[in-house]
Simulated scan of single mutants.
Amino acid sequence: METISNNQVPLLPLDRVIDLKLPELVQCRLCQGIVLNPVACKNCEKAVCSTCIHNLNATKSEPICPYECGCSSYIERTCPKTISHILSTLNILCQYKPNGCPEIISYTKFEEHEKECDYQLSTCIGCEQKIIRKDYEEHERQCPFVLLTCDQCSTSFQRKDTDLHTSIECLRIQLQQQTSKIRQLEIKESEQQIKIDSMQQKVQEYEKFWIGFANTTNQIRGMFDK
């Protein structure tokens, strides 16, 4: 008989349940935590996390029961009502309790709570510290390493450098920008002047051509008049 591995990380550890009774009925054989989104073996009717059992049998040609109940092939069924009822009575500590979350949530609602929990950690875009969600906006408004964008010169700088940028750097950058614009205008003016000179040269060449043409025409007419 194939040995079942028990090295999966618990999806819902037992120590997050308040006053857990009858743990053997609601503990997953594979991850050793409380069964999450449970299903059961049709033969022995023992519950297991749906994710755990699917991971176990994902690469097997013949699915097996993690409880080694003796069934020839694991056939999945819905979780027995007795186990579902026990699960519905469980009270769960939020996984963000170490960050300060005081909530105790029912088994049926703890996943929804944890998706929106204000004690989740977010990484500050400035200092890259881990900040709990409820404090993040206030932290970001004050973090000295958050990038700001100057309204005058459109340059980005860290909040801690605001005074330096406003008093010196911004003026220097604006001067550079204006100098660059002037240079671009000078280049365009030079290009336009080249075009004008070229056109004037062509006009002179046309005038010279038509003067020569007129002189030649007059000479030919003079020859016929004689």
Rank of each mutant, 00 (worst) to 15 (best):
E103D: 02
S72E: 11
K195P: 02
C127R: 04
S180N: 14
Q152H: 07
K97I: 11
E103M: 03
I92E: 00
H139A: 10
G222Q: 07
N218M: 06
K208E: 12
Y74R: 05
T216L: 08
M1K: 12
I83V: 15
N6C: 13
H113F: 02
Y67S: 08
I196Y: 08
V48E: 05
I105E: 01
N57I: 05
M223F: 05
T166I: 12
C65K: 02
G212V: 09
S106F: 00
E137V: 14
S72W: 02
I75G: 02
T155N: 13
T59P: 01
F145V: 02
P23K: 10
N91S: 11
V146S: 00
C49Y: 05
K208Q: 13
S156R: 12
N99E: 13
F213Y: 15
E111G: 00
Q193S: 11
E62C: 04
T51Y: 02
N7F: 05
E24I: 11
C44L: 05
Q204R: 13
Q177G: 09
T78S: 09
R221K: 11
N55T: 14
C143I: 03
I173N: 14
D19K: 10
V9H: 08
Y107E: 05
T78N: 10
Q178E: 13
P98H: 03
C150N: 04
G33M: 03
Q174I: 15
I182W: 06
V146T: 04
R77F: 01
C71W: 02
L14Q: 02
D15Y: 02
H54C: 11
S154F: 08
F209P: 15
T123Y: 02
L22K: 13
A47M: 08
I168N: 10
C31N: 12
I53A: 06
C65Y: 00
Q27L: 00
R29W: 05
Q158K: 15
L11V: 10
A40Q: 12
T216D: 08
L90D: 05
S5H: 09
D225G: 00
Q178W: 04
T123V: 13
I53K: 06
I18R: 07
L36E: 14
Q174M: 15
I132V: 15
Q193W: 04
R133F: 06
I187S: 12
P38V: 13
Q178C: 12
E140A: 13
